[in-house]
Amino acid sequence: MFAYIIRRVLFSVPIVFGVMLLTFFLFFVIQSPDAMARRVLGPKATPQTVNTWLHNRGYDKPIIVPRAAKQSFADYLLISRSWKDSLFIHQMTRLATFDLGSSDVTGRPLIDIFKSGALPSLLITLPAFLLGLMVSIGFALYFVFIRNSALDLLGTFLCIALMSVPLMVYIIFGQWFAALVLKYFPAFGFHMQGMSTLKFLLLPVALIVVSGLGADVRLFRALFLEEMGQDYIRTARAKGVSSARVLLQHVLKNGLINLITMMVASLPFLIMGSLVIENFFGIPGLGNVLFSAIQAPDFAVVQASVFLGSILYLFGLILTDLCYAWADPRIRLH
């Protein structure tokens, strides 16, 4: 098992490297550091400030090899040294050592920004994930129980309809309804103060759950229905097991194991929060950090988020395998 984890981590290295290459190409080759500086500093920035900005972040280094270096044979000999001092190597070693750098706009170290945003994000996404999972599984089981009935058909249609509404519309409607009509929940804002934090969380969590309901119920229903067609379900029914017990015992356990492969991978990514939700509700999580970074623009934040996001995803994949092995007696990790 330990050997397995080590191997999986090693297998992830090329992918992380690929992501690092990709972001480097995107941020420093497609767009020159010069253009980046101008967008961050605004149109009124003097060449002087641009140069200082570039120099301070090391972006004034040659991207890979200085163009001048190719001019003579003598320069070629120096390539090895200049190569090491290129922006590419600088960026790669920076990310490889998990040095996320600092914000383009405020200059604050990104690791601090991410640390302070992680908790508010998790407070929203983790309950929403768990609640959403339970509610969706419940509905899906119920629809499988009454499969092919008129109600099941209506449920399928409602799921498709729920899937067709953009998240923003859910939020706008939810804010209008809960805050202005019910006058109970705050429509906006976030304060971490013990139990009273809860009332700021309720509406965003409910909205994430509802907006994801359609797609999840449909997916889980299809998943459980596929289990219903298996031979061992016929065996269980032939033993005289009741329909409810067939569903809650035999179908659910097999279905949940399949569910793990789909759900666990996204678990670590919950820490990144929800972009739109956090912005609408003014929650100071990582989603909002990213949102501000898009508006600023703050390329360092986006680059670091992409890097972190891929690490979290790969971590999620390993976690998936471990959960799978733990839940399914047929799987052994070697």
């Binding site: 690929g18 990213l290 995803y313």
Partner: peptide, 19 residues
């Protein structure tokens, strides 16, 4: 796998910010 390892919305935002 490399492209899929970056969450889609992040990838889109990163590309669109540059382009």
């Amino acid at each position: 796998s490399t492209i899929a390892s970056v969450p889609e919305i992040l990838m889109l935002v990163a590309i669109l910010m540059v382009l």
